[in-house]
Design a protein around this nucleic acid. Structure first.
Lengths: 155, 155, 155, 155
DNA sequence: TTTT
DNA sequence: TTTT
């Protein structure tokens, strides 16, 4: 089938620092979860907050941007697609579910507690909406799409 | 948490006719799966088609539009949000996974094999991209958002 | 600035056949307008239909797909970005306004009156939601993103 | 026509404080421009930044949230539709162009210089990604859709 | 596991 | 007119 569209747009906060793996062959993959939530008033008049966790997967350049700039608590815009996947979690359990394979990401900063690199000047987490074009030596990251026309990036 | 966004946009074809339930209290819910797929050439030069199935859930007016106009094979545009859910499937099995809770839908017609109401003149499935405003007695359905400002609809 | 997002998602019908130009240097550009519309009931209880016309611009491979498969009346899904532009129209008038620069397109078929190639077997316009993976010799077109990983396409 | 989709998703920064008008009849409208930009390297190897300005229009509850929380420089997520409009600008000039009529907004904070209410404790601009559910007395605003099911909002 |  |  073609003629189909499978698109997800999320803005949420990281539940933990990204986990990054470098594969033989040179590709890299970063994974993390982000939370989105909404609140509403139920029939009893109580305020209810409903949080949804989304497993995000990014490859190659996006993985490296995530590794460099994203930390637990940061807000991020993610655009990607839904993919059903089976994987083994950190506890060795077989898991199945969906992953959002990102093909575009924009760092929105904020909210971060710093994660494992808290207060580390070498790896500063974004502190506010990132609105700078990436340059070599640029400490803040970009809006970047997966793909090939950004070869001037320092990654 | 607010400040978050959880949005899904899909165009795909129904795997079967919608299943509709009317609940005590007057609300109704329709569920069906739609397939999206993409194809690519793998490292062996073979064309690979990858299909993803998405469980769609619609409520109330959207459920009734789905019941009336959507049939197995039809193409549909769905806009909604990702929700993790647990449910019991038709075989009585406990299932967990995500559901796309739709808040907007546009019928694109086509592709339909007619499903269980094949060739039924009473419940004609959309035959082509629906480009008409819904009216009472209008045989073709609308783009409709979940919400409240469409009370002139014949539903 | 980065950290910004500029995204447009449209489903509409072509007002005319695409106009395609081939530029020195090998690139090509296709332009057409699509209509979206919505209807509502105004305060006088009258049904009002409001149509919006969007000027679409596609480059290179997408331009060629448009030239080959899109005709007046066809429905199409367009994903792109808003760009302010100045141009000279067919009457030689200076025009300014926005253009939607598409980076993704899915043919939905239908609605076509055939345009200038009506009933031409050599250039069949899509007749219904395109749900086939493009192959060499495949008469129906694909969902295709602007970019580079689709070089196996017959374009 | 129906069966169409007209959707815009933007993340950008306000060029100025919102301008808000209260109309006879009780409705209110807020307008402001936001900038999105992207940068790329041109054929001469120079880094080029291209900024696009988008005129945003919000009504009623969204207008009031904008008035209360948005300031020049703030980052915001906007979801809406493209509408062609004619209006008279502040210099009394007739203008025509598109407006993005928002139906959903999420404050992302940051970047603000404070605009005309700079450092005003009475009208604090959002300082960082807003991730709180709105409550009475809550100083920070929500993700809110245009519509009717949020009547518990303090607006 | 996030955020407010 | 924003942002970096």
């Amino acid at each position: 089938m073609a003629g189909s569209v499978n698109k997800v747009i999320l803005i949420g906060n990281l539940g933990s620092d990204p986990e990054v793996r470098y594969l033989e062959g040179g590709s890299s993959v970063a994974r993390f979860n982000i939370a989105t939530s909404e609140s509403y008033t139920n029939k009893n008049g109580e305020r209810v907050e409903q949080t949804e966790w989304h497993r995000i997967e990014l490859w190659d350049r996006l993985a490296q941007i995530a590794e460099k700039y994203l930390r637990k608590g940061n807000a991020v815009y993610i655009e990607g697609k839904i993919r059903s996947e089976n994987w083994t979690d950190k506890e060795g359990q077989q898991r199945s579910g969906i992953t959002i394979r990102a093909n575009n990401m924009t760092l929105l900063g904020g909210g971060g507690t710093g994660g494992t690199t808290e207060n580390s000047p070498q790896q500063p987490a974004a502190r506010q909406p990132v609105t700078t074009t990436p340059r070599a030596n640029d400490p803040v990251p970009p809006t970047m799409a997966a793909g090939g026309d950004d070869d001037d990036l320092p990654f």
